[in-house]
Design a binder for these strands. Structure first.
Ligand SMILES: [Zn+2]
Ligand SMILES: [Zn+2]
Length: 814
DNA sequence: AGCACGCCGACT
DNA sequence: GTCGGCGTGCTC
């Protein structure tokens, strides 16, 4: 019996199956999709069985004797045959190693690696004159039984020669063990080591100069529960060193804890039954059912305005799927996977639903995943990675808010859940339903060309009209002498809501207080020491922070360049809007929601719950408040600065802006009262803003398609973004030139190779980045050519300390 | 990616 | 003489 194995070594050079003999004792266990430990060169690695041949009795490959599988790592294959085939497709589609695709499919509880270890084979020969390190090494081996090779080299570098000799002489045994990937998410919690009273006394006894340590203790005393280290540091605005100092003084403990418990575990879900449908919903469910019954693969776009009841259409389509004995996957953007959303599915389908959520602990997620694998549930609801739910009788895949960029994975392999879902639908003869109020332009184009069918929902079952949208030209405001961040129109509108007890949602896509810090005398701008980006000023702890690498430093009292005290803050963030609201509308109650206020577990739900119950007049936030939240009492939505997205150097900027404005506008007037939306901008004439104002998706899509056609951008071409990065600028630049030249030689002139050019932000995290963009149409020609180039340059690049990342169909070009 | 093998400079 | 630098070749 022969097994073909893809080893878990994610490099192009070994990205192909290797043949192994299966020892008779293991043959009942070895099946496609199972993980095994195999000898590979001089070491052992983990691999995935991608094929077995019972009849094949061959004993050699490429003229050399076959090696045998050393161990089987699972009782049952974690990957189905379908997923094994999907991995092979992903490797071609996304130019990634197959093993990287398999890793992306596994729950993190099953992610493993091998570890090289040393152990004594019996009693070691006596050493005549051992060095201190050699003696300590032998002592550690005796006491612990075995040591990892890495640890031994790090702790006892002076014993390296002895290790080598003993391995050669057979005194030491080198072996490999499969261990968990160090990916188990833990959070560090800060726990007082003394009672609160003692803590208070300790705070008062601190040196007056220990400002940060006092801030940490104050924040800890104010916290109802032991906070996570990250939360505590953010709340106190203190550096980690302050906490370390307090730990050393014996006042605090740090405790590692596995992340969050199941946020829905305690919740009980009231059973719900299907409500009556509108005629349009009925027609949509009907079309999906027909497609299901055909047993042929279909992709359907459900294009419905906000509030048109898309979710109910999904629910009833799922019910039909289950009736026919098949299974369903529902993808929802991570941020929209709220307890309310989960309740809608659990309420309808009860225990037949598994939820895959990043807020589950590794163990809980694994439990949900296992229910799917064993067929104990028929519906999987989750974010992007739930698209790999290991069902074997898939009938329906739903992608809600299909235009969301979060469906594209940002790490290797950079897959798009929509493309993976489409592949699975083809394979199963299943139906893929894409739902959106503002479909991605690619999806819209596919529906126009007839490749996918479009179903339109224009009625709102709860009634309610679309809000009126007013665009305010902020240049006019400046001319009229209004230098505040609220236009006169927005200020009056807010005042009206305050006086009649209605609520307001305000949106600004920038967190912190000020987006840059400038010296009025010499023009100095505070920059991140690790990135080519300016630092954002945050009120908490009066710190300057880099939003990209996390660097933080105290605010400068004087300009570090010229010593002038005239350091000023520019570019309003949410904190500054909060401050301005309090000044402009005395007594106003504001809830601010951004990454800084929602880091703590459950904070998201708590803040939204407080706003819903009327504890605040205004919900002020970033991106995260744009998603399908329903607040019946909200009658005004204000967009503080609509052009922040428009200014990004990306071909999708207009699309992003249109989608965001439409989504934010959908927050207004979901009750009986009509909603009003006010959009502030410096570019009021831009078509993405004008057409969002008139709620005209079709006109926007046509206009934007014309722009894309002119620039030959997707959907009229396809893109591959190659990014090279490293600490040595010149090495990176040179490597980028070399890669671009090789690709130019490898593809024909129907493909364009742009660049290399420096990335829009050249340096991030002390790494310099250069990029190269491929624009092409002929996929079957370009992808193999690029793959070959990647294999050619892989070695040389890693030797030069240059990383190369490949993004097929990138969402952003930087 | 590891890991071994192999061939040149500067240490005991 | 040997320790160790990293080029290059291979992994069923
Ligand atoms: Zn200055
Ligand atoms: Zn930075």
């Amino acid at each position: 019996m022969i097994a073909r194995v893809v080893v878990d070594v994610p490099v192009a050079a070994v990205d192909r199956p290797f043949d192994y003999a299966v020892p008779p004792a293991l043959s009942p266990l070895v099946r496609v999709g199972i993980r095994v430990l195999v000898p590979f060169g001089p070491r052992q690695v983990i691999g995935f069985v991608v094929d077995v041949d019972e009849a094949d009795g061959k004993t050699e490959a490429a003229g050399k004797a076959l090696k045998a599988i050393a161990a089987v790592l699972d009782p049952e294959p974690p990957l189905t045959e379908e997923l094994v085939a999907l991995g092979a497709w992903m490797a071609e589609a996304y130019l990634c190693p197959r093993s990287a695709a398999y890793q992306a499919m596994l729950p993190s509880a099953l992610k493993a690696r091998t570890e090289k270890r040393l152990r004594l084979r019996g009693e070691p020969p006596p050493l005549l004159a051992p060095s201190a390190e050699e003696a300590a090494f032998v002592e550690a081996l005796r006491r612990r039984g075995h040591l990892t090779f890495d640890e031994a080299m790090k702790r006892f570098p002076g014993a390296a020669a002895l290790m080598r000799r003993w391995v050669e002489e057979g005194v030491l045994d080198v072996f490999y063990a499969a261990v968990d990937r160090a990916g188990t998410k833990t959070v560090t919690r800060v726990v007082p080591a003394v009672d609160p009273e003692a803590l208070r006394r300790a705070r008062d006894a601190l040196s007056p100069r220990a400002v940060r340590q006092r801030a940490v203790l104050d924040a800890l005393l104010a916290a109802p529960h032991p906070p996570t280290l990250a939360d505590l540091l953010a709340a106190a605005g203190a550096p980690r060193s302050a906490v370390t100092a307090l730990v050393e003084k014996g006042l605090l403990h740090l405790v590692e804890e596995e992340v969050y418990r199941d946020p829905y575990a305690a919740a009980s879900f009231a059973p719900s039954s299907p409500p009556p449908l509108t005629a349009q919903q009925e027609a949509a469910v009907c079309r999906i059912s027909e497609a299901l019954a055909s047993g042929q693969p279909h992709t359907l776009l459900v294009h419905g305005v906000t509030g048109s009841g898309k979710t109910e259409v999904y629910l009833q389509a799922i019910a039909r799927t289950l009736e026919s004995g098949r299974q369903a996957i529902v993808l929802v953007p991570e941020i929209a996977l709220t307890p309310q959303m989960v309740e809608r599915f659990k309420g309808r389908f009860g225990a037949r639903v598994a939820v895959l959520h990043s807020r589950l602990s590794v163990g809980e997620r694994y439990d949900e995943w296992r229910k799917i694998r064993r067929g104990e549930v028929d519906v999987a609801v989750g974010a992007r990675s739930a698209v790999f739910a290991p069902f074997t009788r898939l009938g329906l895949l739903v992608i809600d808010e299909e235009h969301e960029t979060s469906y594209k994975q940002e790490e290797q392999p950079k897959y798009h859940a929509r493309a993976v879902a489409r592949w699975r639908a083809e394979r199963h003869g299943a139906v893929l339903v894409l739902g959106s109020a503002t479909p991605a332009l690619e999806t819209y184009a596919a529906s126009k060309s007839g490749r996918i069918e479009r179903i339109v929902l224009t009625e709102r079952p709860g009634g309610g009209r679309l809000p009126t949208v007013t665009v305010v030209d902020m240049r006019e405001e400046l001319r009229a002498g209004n230098r505040s961040m609220f236009s006169r129109r927005l200020r009056e509108a807010i005042e009206r809501r305050l006086s009649c007890g209605e609520q307001v949602v305000l949106f600004l896509n920038r967190r912190g207080y000020a987006t840059f810090v400038l010296c009025r005398v010499c023009g100095y701008v505070a920059q991140c020491p690790h990135c080519d980006l300016s630092l954002t000023y945050h009120l908490a702890g009066r710190m300057l922070r880099c939003h990209t690498c996390g660097h933080a430093e105290p605010e400068p009292a004087r300009c570090p360049s010229c010593g002038s005290p005239h350091v000023r803050y520019f570019g309003a963030g949410t904190q500054r809007v909060e401050e301005a609201l309090a000044r402009t509308f005395p007594g106003i109650r504001v809830i601010r929601m951004d990454v800084d206020t929602t880091r703590a577990k459950g904070a998201h739900e708590v803040l939204l719950g407080r706003f819903r119950s009327g504890e605040a007049d205004v919900l002020l936030g970033t991106q995260m408040i744009a998603k399908g939240l329903d607040f019946p009492n909200v009658t005004l939505v204000g967009v503080i600065a609509a052009d922040t997205l428009l200014r990004l150097p990306d071909f999708r900027a207009a699309e992003r802006t249109f989608q965001l404005l439409t989504q934010v506008a959908g927050r207004a007037g979901r009750g009986e009262r009509p909603g009003e939306v006010i959009v502030q901008t410096y570019a009021p004439e831009h078509y993405s803003i004008r057409l969002a104002q008139s709620h005209d998706y079709a006109a926007f899509a046509e206009r934007e398609l014309a722009v894309r056609r002119k620039g030959m951008y997707p959907p009229f071409s396809r893109l591959i973004l190659l990014t090279l990065s490293g600490r040595d600028v010149r090495a990176v630049q040179k490597a980028a030139g070399d890669v671009a030249a090789r690709i130019r030689r490898a593809v024909d002139d129907t493909a364009q190779v742009l660049g290399p050019s420096p990335s829009p932000v050249l340096r991030v995290n002390d790494r310099y980045r250069f990029q190269c963009v491929l624009k092409y149409k002929n996929e079957s020609l370009v992808k193999p050519a690029v793959k070959a180039v990647l294999a050619e340059v892989e070695r040389a690049l890693s030797a030069q300390g240059v990383g190369l990342s490949v993004d097929v169909d990138p969402m952003v070009l930087w």
